[in-house]
Design a protein around this nucleic acid. Structure first.
Lengths: 224, 224
DNA sequence: GCAACTTTGTGCACACGTTCACAAGCGTCT
DNA sequence: AGACGCTTGTGAACGTGTGCACAAAGTTGC
């Protein structure tokens, strides 16, 4: 299954859940694509990797398709997650309701700061980073979420990997290297803003300002 | 400039900043690529879209290249940002230091909950959502960050767009439609976890379990 | 000044992803 | 039962992105 398709399955799942809540029983690729914000041909091709779960002339049965995608992603089992770094972001993640409702159970919270130890966040006690290996082992944790400052991210990832975690979601604004076989995904708030800024600059007649600056640089290059 | 290249520029910028802090003056594409975690040929091709800023036989001057990327992304000006939705995540975003240091100034915080009004977060008073249009106009806000519950996301985006915001970063787990000309980027925590779960499932001999389940389904399909 | 060495910038081939367009298949209505 | 209309599933064309491999261009040492 293409990686691009995998990345869209959660999107379809969400759209289907919304439809199910509205009591819709059947949906065409055109309708589903519209509510997921993608092209209908792409949607059909994506779904075809799961199997032939549609009915020609009718569409897809919402509940059935939802179950198939859930199974394909692996959300029929529940996944134990550890969050490392209980700062502002770590707090927000721990309290985020969207995880539990999608098969992800936050099983442990870990921080290196001794003053945070024992603090209760989202019904869990914050434990010390030294216990990380033990925690991963005891609770059967397969997914680690890193919400530490940038400078700690590589070390934390190394320890997670050493403890046997093979999937990491990194929120720290740092470039982290992991060995083969470990999946690392990155969510970077300021990168996203920078991409927006690039396009924003292009919109606001910034072309003019750029041309002027480029002209100055050209002159400098020729003269200097 | 290819979209994929734009998405990597912030990555290079971060790697260059790290190098500059370490006092490195010059860097080769091979070294820079390694610290950014990409292929060196890709790095060179990406940088070639900015111009010919390298020196053959030597490499790239760190400070100069950093300036060029900063200018290209549009980080020489500062961007006023409004955060809508001051829950757990909104708090975390407002307090996140990584924005200010990269040219993004959080200019206003907005929430619809009257009990949050006037609360001071990160040195700013939380203002009511009704004032959104006024705030955007007065403060010259070009970028909106949406950290509301899913059900409010579409409405908030509509109002941001109506007020003149043309770039939106959406953290709400909802599918939002925006008109042509408006850039919408999405950061979705549970989507990322779901992608990890998919790959994780593949690793742990889940192929066996899947085959068993598929066999059961096949039997059901044939018999039922 | 020249040869040897290093590193950039890029043409080219390949892989991946997207979109079109249509045959195949299902339900419905007469 | 057969014709008709609708929607899926997919082959094929196209576009975008990646990576190799090398010529071009600079630096260093003699």
């Amino acid at each position: 299954m293409p990686e691009a398709t995998v990345a869209r399955l959660p999107l379809y799942l969400r759209a289907l859940t919304t439809l199910a809540e509205r009591g819709v029983a059947t949906v065409s690729s055109e309708e589903l694509a519209a509510s997921a914000g993608v092209n209908s041909a792409k949607l059909r091709k994506d779904l075809s990797y799961l199997g032939s779960y549609g009915t020609r002339g009718v569409g897809y049965e919402v509940d059935f398709l939802r179950h198939q995608i859930t199974r394909e992603i692996g959300l029929t089992q529940d996944w134990a997650v550890v969050i490392v770094g209980i700062g502002n972001l770590g707090h927000a993640l721990a309290n985020y309701g969207g995880f539990a409702s999608r098969g992800f159970r936050i099983a442990a919270l870990v921080d290196a700061d001794p003053t945070r130890l024992g603090e209760e966040v989202a019904g869990l006690n914050v434990r010390h980073a030294d216990e990380l290996e033990q925690i991963v082992d005891d609770l059967g944790i397969a997914i680690g979420v890193v919400a530490t400052p940038a400078r700690a991210a590589q070390l934390v990832c190394d320890r997670l990997v050493a403890a046997g975690v093979t999937s990491i979601l990194n929120f720290a604004p740092a470039i982290v290297q992991v060995p083969e076989g470990v999946d690392l995904r990155k969510v970077d708030l300021s990168t996203e803003l920078q991409i927006l800024a690039y396009h924003e600059q292009r919109k606001n007649g910034a072309a003019l300002a750029l041309t002027a600056e480029q002209a100055a640089e050209l002159a400098e290059a020729v003269n200097g």
